[in-house]
Design a protein around this nucleic acid. Structure first.
Lengths: 199, 199
DNA sequence: GTCTATATAGAGATAGAC
DNA sequence: GTCTATCTCTATATAGAC
């Protein structure tokens, strides 16, 4: 199920500006293929082509396809994580802001977000990417905890899963984007209130 | 993204008992590979091998790999649909039974259920399979409607998505199976109550 | 440092023997 | 009706030229 762990880092850590751009172009090409044609269409030849480089060059920077996708996952997570970190931790309505940030992130490139979500499952992430996933979940949970008081770990996780599930479904067109934030909020608050016996 | 629509029916509709068994063996082999090695490992040579037939024979009954997976999806859906249909439509606590049936179904072969869920997305189903998906969603929604009164279509769908999402997450080991039914129930009821202004 | 060309391997699918 | 052998295609990854 899980693939052998290869070093997913760029082979050369690109220091020169030109090289950094090349790496970025490669990752972005992968992103575009993913959102335009789906996961099955992603292959190294096509990535190189769309990135405007040759396969040879691509393999100078990434040891294999997997590494490129991990880099992409990391790139996307970084954005969301930064947005979540920007939410004042003691904010009055942190939940609302958290939901808003997640929705915003999802809808910038909904097909990409959905595709990555699916890809990630059963995918060996490198240490750094895994850490970021952890950070995002932990951040969400701690924001929730602050607003709703001491809650069981699993209950917090459940709330996060509910939110993520609905936002993702919306990103895939299963739910309307209109009213989504309120819908998610209702779902999360509804669950947490049901827990604390809100008959 | 979506693949060209091929006829996913068995080439020969198998009438003889032996042929029916062969078809079943092929589909079951695909199921096992899926749960043991993941979607990427599924290929027709391996399926044939595990089914104890040759590729040639496999292609006698299915036009391509896609058709086998659709048959598998159909096989699994049929089971769930039958269970949902067995719930007395005016039952006192239809929601509880619906959740129980879904959880039971998920945990018979959790890895398989998860893998299929992921596969289905962006997968061209044949008419019959699509109908069954529709039937399952419709059935769930109508059971909910009966218990919670007239609700917006989208709200019903949201409730179904919440339930499915949590059950799936549990199937993937993200949530404990213990207490899952109550957790799902809380989530669904919490959302629906939040809607109707449960402060 | 980037390209072209290609070796290698694996998967899908078929032909033709039995 | 089933098998073996194989054709073809596509993808990964590398070698070697420039």
């Amino acid at each position: 199920m899980t693939r052998p762990v290869t070093a997913p880092e760029p082979r050369k850590t690109p220091v020169q500006r030109r090289a950094v751009e090349t790496c970025a172009a490669i990752v972005e090409a992968a992103a575009r293929i993913l959102e335009e044609q789906g996961a099955e269409a992603v292959n190294t030849n096509l990535i190189a082509d769309r990135a405007g480089v040759s396969v040879g060059t691509l393999y100078q920077y990434y040891p294999d396809k997997h590494a490129i996708l991990v880099a992409l996952i990391r790139r996307e997570r970084e954005v969301l994580l930064a947005e979540l970190r920007a939410i004042p931790h003691g904010a009055e309505d942190a939940l609302r802001e958290m939901i808003a940030a997640s929705i915003r992130h999802q809808f910038v490139r909904p097909r990409l977000a959905s595709a990555l979500e699916r890809i990630e499952i059963g995918f060996a992430l490198d240490a750094e990417a895994a850490e970021m996933a952890e950070a995002i979940a932990g951040m969400s949970a701690s924001l929730l905890a602050r607003q709703f008081g001491a809650l069981d770990r699993t209950d917090l996780l459940t709330a996060v899963l509910i939110a993520r599930g609905l936002i993702n479904a919306a990103g895939e067109g299963q739910l309307p984007e209109v009213g989504l934030a309120e819908r998610v909020r209702n779902a999360v608050e509804g669950y947490l209130r049901a827990l604390t016996g809100g008959a």
